[in-house]
Design a protein around this nucleic acid. Structure first.
Length: 424
RNA sequence: GGAGGGAUGGCUGAGUGGCCGAAAGCACCGGUCUUGAAAACCGGCGAGUCGAGAGGCUCCCUGGGUUCGAAUCCCAGUCCCUCCGCCA
């Protein structure tokens, strides 16, 4: 959520900045609600104050054994007025909250203008796409040839957009997870966490999936309420600091977390219907940082580098791009996507998305740290990035390391995790 | 699933209708003392919100209710703990 104070005093500026994201901020409606809210709030608080002081008078009068019946009647009438004012105030407050909860984060000034992914800006490339002296297969064909990647079986068990893996491919999938977690904990200073794969609605409000993007989630009825399958471990892990005040000496918090992720992929029916690219369920190792505000931009560069490191270890060619305003996610102020080379498609495909959310999520979830300079709790900044999406990493390894006969070399760095196996 | 206990500031914990946004301790900050530190002593110290300020308002798990007035009484719910049962 944006800072209501800031929005209140600079509604035009907010609208201007949000245009970059393709979001139309309703200045008129906001200002109108805000003005009403203020009026009613002043009225309500005055009534409240009046009632409080008169009630105290009653207490004193009773102690002095005076007749308090007329006073009581008077205050009772006051209370009825107050109740009415409270109801109106609550409605206005609710309307403002609803509006503000649906407003995306402001894009950073360094975010390029643009509406679609075509307007994203490449920042750097690493590695050279390999020259094949044969036509490279995609991972679907490779998986079928090996008999270890089975989408039809998954369709039988569940439905479209799920996968069954077996044997060495399943093991490589697991090996990738181990490599990622080990690298981030041992080399990059992250603490590994294990979290629930289902969360409550509060957590999803905190990170920004709710109230706007419920259609993208899998909902699980449970008793009187609903739980949701997590669309990314960003949700449970970031919410670890919801309603907390982190001591300065514990900052920055760095977490890495492996979980399955569940996405309904609403509205993606025509896209990437085959293969591991777009699934309802996939594994991801996430990188998460909670930092003091002054350091979040440095942290974004650093975190992106940590994700890149995995691709370097696997010797997979990639590029890093800056998302343009129109392609930027709801809560992000700036996002770097990392795209890995996919020979079967002859192009770079997203494998990681690293974002600085600034205080956008922190404000929603009241996540603060105690600033030693002021001694006061202040909102912290949250960042997250995939380090990496495991299914897509697997697919990239299979396709980039394939040989003419369809066998696949195991990248050197994975061999210790696969009992020394050198090829599939 | 059954029985009981609990939720109060950064932490521990007192508080059963008005003098309670809330005792006390710890932690923290400032000071006295000291060559320095510790100890001792003195003082300060919850959060949010409105306001230029004075100050006002809200917040004692959540939501309802009773009352002139609720941390305190009533109802519903959530979470935590203990015991029994069951269980990977």
């Amino acid at each position: 959520m944006l800072d209501p104070k800031y929005v209140r005093s600079n509604p035009e500026e907010v609208a201007q900045l949000l245009k970059k994201k393709g979001f139309d901020f309703p200045v008129e409606r906001f200002s109108e609600l805000e003005q009403q809210r203020k009026e009613v709030q002043v009225l309500t608080e005055n009534l409240q104050s009046e009632r409080n002081s008169r009630s105290k008078q009653i207490g004193k009068a009773m102690a002095a054994k005076e007749d308090v019946a007329p006073l009581k009647a008077e205050v009772k009438a006051l209370g009825e007025q107050l109740d009415a004012a409270k109801v109106t105030l609550a409605e206005l407050q609710q309307a403002l909250d609803d509006l503000l909860l649906g407003v995306p984060n402001l894009p950073h000034e360094s975010v390029p203008e643009g509406e679609t992914e075509d307007d994203n800006v490449e920042v750097r490339r690493w590695g050279q796409p390999r020259n094949f002296d044969f036509t490279p297969k995609d991972h679907i064909d490779l998986g079928e040839q090996h008999g270890e990647l089975d989408f039809e079986a998954a369709a039988k068990l569940t439905g479209a957009r799920f996968a069954v893996m077996k044997g060495k491919i399943a093991r490589m999938h697991r090996a990738l997870i181990q490599l990622m977690l080990d690298t981030h904990t041992a080399e990059h200073g992250y603490t590994e966490v294990y979290v629930p794969f289902m969360v409550n609605a509060d957590s999803l409000y905190g990170t920004g999936q709710l109230p706007k993007f419920e259609a993208d989630l899998f909902k699980v009825p449970f008793g009187e309420r609903d739980y949701y399958l997590i669309p990314t471990s960003e949700v449970p892990v970031t919410n670890l600091v919801r309603d907390e005040i982190v001591p300065a000496e514990q900052m920055p918090l760095r977490f890495t977390c492996h979980t399955p992720c569940f996405r309904s992929e609403a509205g993606a029916s025509g896209k990437d219907t085959r293969g591991l690219i777009r699934q309802h369920q996939f594994e991801k190792v996430e990188l998460l940082q909670l930092v003091e505000p002054a350091k979040s931009w440095d942290a974004l560069e650093e975190l992106t580098g940590h994700a890149e490191k995995i691709l370097q270890l696997l010797n997979l060619p990639y590029r890093v791009i800056t998302l343009c305003g129109g392609d930027l996610g709801f809560g992000a102020a700036k996002t770097y996507d990392i795209e890995v080379w996919v020979p079967g498609q002859d192009k770079y495909r997203e494998i990681s998305s690293c974002s600085n959310m600034l205080d956008f999520q922190a404000r929603r979830m009241k996540a603060r740290w105690r600033n030693p300079e002021t001694g006061k709790p202040e909102l912290l900044h949250s960042l997250n990035g995939s380090g990496l999406a495991v299914g897509r990493t697997l697919l990239a390894v299979l396709e980039n390391y394939q040989r003419a006969d369809g066998s696949i070399e195991v990248p050197e760095v994975l061999r210790p995790y696969m009992g020394g196996v050198t090829e599939l």
